[in-house]
Computed example of a mutant assay.
Amino acid sequence: MRTSNHLIGLLNFLTFVLSIPILAGGIWLSSKANSTECLRFLQWPLIIIGVAIMVVSLAGFAGACYRNTFLMWLYLFVMFFVIVALIVFIVFAYAVTDKGSGRTVPSRVYLDYYLQDYSGWLKDRVAEESYWEKISSCVRDSKVCKKMGRIVGGVPESVEMFNLRKLSPIESGCCKPPSDCGFSYQNETVWTGVEGMVLFNSDCTNWNNDQSELCYNCDSCKAGVLASLKRSWRKVSVINIVVLIILVIAYVIGIAAFRNNRRIDNEEASGEARMEKARPSWIHS
């Protein structure tokens, strides 16, 4: 009779535990020292959903274990909206990070990033001039380019060694010019071109060896931000999908537990009513 109650209690304890990595994932995205730190507003829905799942799971656990019909009703009511919100969040995360990836470069391990490879709301949001000023300033303040320098054997690394590095999207897009510019490598963040060379990429003219400028105003930097977001969000989305499946299963079993609680309450109420009627009249008087 109480199997569904015990099962829903166990599942809600499990969802409570799983809400921890969801919450941690949102905090990780909002505190990560790269482009995601510069777009923190995208992480708040994830944090709110994680907290909501924690609270609702506790209510469902208590309602199932203590056979509290009101808590079970509240659990089912709120959990429905949590599941819908999580579905919307997952679909939104995949939709805005659907297109775009790095391009391979001959004789290089790192990838180059191009803004035209991306599309949709997130691209328009990131590329918006007023908004990009805030993002680029945040990326600059993270000092990700400054940390690229390497000393090998007491001397800076050679161009051959640099070409074998696996750069992050931010490092590739914001800290160096695009490879098709044909610039000569001096060090990780200093590149020089030949006077009079024909440049087909507008980012080539935007590149500046000034360490406070570099390629922060390049489309490749915007593409690197988008690629970094896509990489981070896809990792977190895997956890979200697993939790969503468990929540749906818990919700279905929760309905059975709720019906079970109501049936038991009705049986107990009917039993008390029959006992009340069965009592001798002199007891009532």
Rank of each mutant, 00 (worst) to 15 (best):
F200I: 13
V225T: 03
V242D: 00
C215P: 05
E171A: 05
F258K: 09
F162W: 13
R259D: 07
G224M: 00
S172W: 06
V252H: 11
N187E: 12
L214A: 02
C215N: 11
S232C: 00
V238S: 07
A227S: 10
N208G: 03
S212H: 07
K235T: 12
L164F: 09
V194W: 00
G154K: 06
L226S: 01
V159H: 14
S142W: 04
S184Y: 01
V252M: 12
F183R: 06
N208A: 04
S179T: 14
S172K: 03
L199D: 08
N187L: 11
C215W: 04
N163Y: 13
L247Y: 04
S237P: 08
R165M: 11
C138Y: 00
S202P: 09
C215H: 08
W207F: 10
M197T: 14
P177N: 01
E160M: 09
S228C: 01
M197N: 13
I249P: 10
Q211L: 10
K230G: 01
S168Y: 01
P178M: 00
V248C: 11
E188H: 09
Q211V: 09
S172C: 06
K222R: 15
V198R: 14
Y216F: 12
K147A: 15
S158Q: 02
F200A: 13
L244I: 03
V198Y: 13
C138K: 03
V225P: 00
I246M: 04
V152N: 15
R259F: 07
V198P: 11
I239M: 09
N201P: 12
A257Q: 07
V190F: 08
A256P: 09
G193F: 04
L199M: 14
G196D: 02
V144I: 15
S237T: 13
S168T: 11
G149P: 15
T189K: 01
C138Q: 03
V252I: 15
D210T: 04
E160P: 02
C145Y: 03
R231W: 10
N240F: 11
L199E: 13
V194Q: 06
R165Q: 13
C175V: 07
V144M: 15
A227C: 05
I249R: 03
V242P: 00
E213K: 09
R150I: 14
D203L: 01
V144K: 15
R150G: 01
D180V: 12
G154W: 07
S232V: 02
R234H: 13
G173R: 02
T189M: 00
C204F: 05
N209W: 02
N217S: 10
L229K: 01
N209V: 02
E213S: 09
L214K: 08
S142C: 11
L199F: 09
V225F: 03
S228A: 02
G196F: 00
D203N: 05
A250G: 11
P178A: 00
E213R: 08
E157L: 13
L214G: 04
E160D: 14
C218D: 07
F200Y: 14
N217I: 03
Y251N: 05
P169N: 06
I151E: 15
M148W: 06
I245G: 10
F200E: 14
V236G: 03
L214T: 04
M161N: 12
D141W: 00
L164W: 07
K230D: 01
F200D: 14
L244T: 02
S184K: 03
V225W: 01
I241D: 03
L244S: 03
E213N: 07
N209D: 00
L164A: 11
F162A: 12
C215Q: 06
D141L: 10
K222T: 09
D210L: 03
N217T: 08
